[in-house]
Amino acid sequence: MALPTRVEIVPGGGVVDRLQGLVSPPATITVTCLPHHGPEETVGLAVKLSGLGYRAVPHLAARTLTSRRQLMHFTTRLADAGVRDIFVIAGDDKDPEGPYDWSMPVMEEIADVGGFNTGFAAYPEGHPSISEPELTQLLLKKQQLGSWAVTQMCFSGDVLNRYVARLRSDGVTVPVWAGVPGRVRRTRLIALAGRIGVGPSLKFAKRSGSLLRSVLAPSSYDPAPLVRSIERSNAFAGVHVYSFNDFSGIPRA
């Protein structure tokens, strides 16, 4: 049985026109919040997508928010547009633009407003600056405010399945969405994966038989075998596709 699918997009480049041609409403579309475009563009795009019939999930990066007033303005706009899910992250900015230097205070503010389901990030291959025990403690705290989690992009079903089993044994009970790459050209995918910190599973893929063929094939990475392994585990709420705005092959098992 196929799992629910969410598609992550990046604002810009006529993304909505291209999306509409290949992914129909009421699909769930998540919208990134990167330093070079900021939260205003993310929220605006989420509002637009909701108006087109999609279930929009904006990302809010804590370090990009300039004030509590700005955050409240965003939550009002999103609520008025019918958006009910927000994914909260710390963000890639080194220095915060305002009072929030990590995701928890933003999650607390949104919880006080009410009416939203908040998601947060999970790291099956670890975090470069946070130890594994610290990550576990953070997830336990965040699940008191959040409704679901999304994993960092991963190329290995075994890594993802072991990770969610470990989360459950540690007491993390929220639904987890498995973050997987879409059908992206392999040269671009590998370059992007290196930039966003995906390491062990990509290294494994390069020296593994079947994964070697799927990741390093001449054309595009095929996520279907990875998605099938995730579905067989029966451990995930759904599949979160990192599309990099390539919608030609959203994975289906």
Score class of each variant (00 low, 15 high):
2 A>V: 05
4 P>M: 04
9 I>N: 09
11 P>R: 01
13 G>P: 10
13 G>Y: 06
14 G>A: 03
20 Q>T: 07
20 Q>N: 13
21 G>M: 02
24 S>C: 11
27 A>E: 10
27 A>T: 08
29 I>V: 15
29 I>L: 06
34 L>M: 15
36 H>S: 11
39 P>C: 07
42 T>W: 06
46 A>F: 06
46 A>N: 02
47 V>C: 07
50 S>A: 11
52 L>K: 14
54 Y>P: 10
55 R>L: 05
56 A>S: 13
60 L>H: 05
62 A>G: 09
63 R>T: 03
64 T>C: 11
66 T>I: 11
67 S>R: 15
71 L>E: 01
74 F>C: 05
75 T>W: 02
76 T>K: 13
77 R>M: 15
78 L>F: 07
81 A>Q: 05
82 G>E: 10
84 R>Y: 04
89 I>A: 02
91 G>A: 00
91 G>H: 01
93 D>Q: 12
94 K>G: 13
97 E>L: 14
101 D>V: 03
101 D>H: 12
104 M>S: 14
105 P>W: 10
108 E>Q: 14
112 D>N: 13
113 V>H: 15
114 G>P: 06
116 F>A: 07
116 F>D: 09
121 A>N: 05
123 Y>L: 06
127 H>T: 03
127 H>Q: 04
129 S>F: 15
130 I>Q: 12
133 P>I: 09
136 T>W: 12
137 Q>K: 13
137 Q>F: 13
140 L>M: 10
143 Q>M: 02
147 S>C: 07
147 S>V: 00
148 W>S: 12
151 T>S: 09
157 G>L: 01
158 D>C: 00
159 V>A: 13
162 R>H: 13
167 L>T: 11
173 T>S: 15
173 T>I: 12
174 V>E: 12
177 W>K: 02
181 P>H: 05
182 G>F: 00
183 R>F: 00
184 V>N: 02
185 R>E: 13
186 R>W: 02
186 R>L: 00
189 L>M: 09
190 I>A: 04
191 A>P: 01
192 L>K: 12
193 A>K: 03
194 G>D: 02
195 R>S: 08
195 R>H: 05
196 I>Q: 07
201 S>Y: 07
203 K>G: 11
204 F>V: 09
210 S>Y: 07
211 L>Y: 13
211 L>Q: 11
213 R>Y: 03
215 V>S: 07
219 S>F: 12
220 S>W: 04
222 D>C: 11
223 P>W: 05
224 A>F: 00
224 A>S: 15
226 L>I: 00
230 I>Y: 00
232 R>M: 03
236 F>T: 00
237 A>I: 00
238 G>P: 04
243 S>E: 02
245 N>I: 03
245 N>K: 05
250 I>C: 13
252 R>A: 09
253 A>N: 15
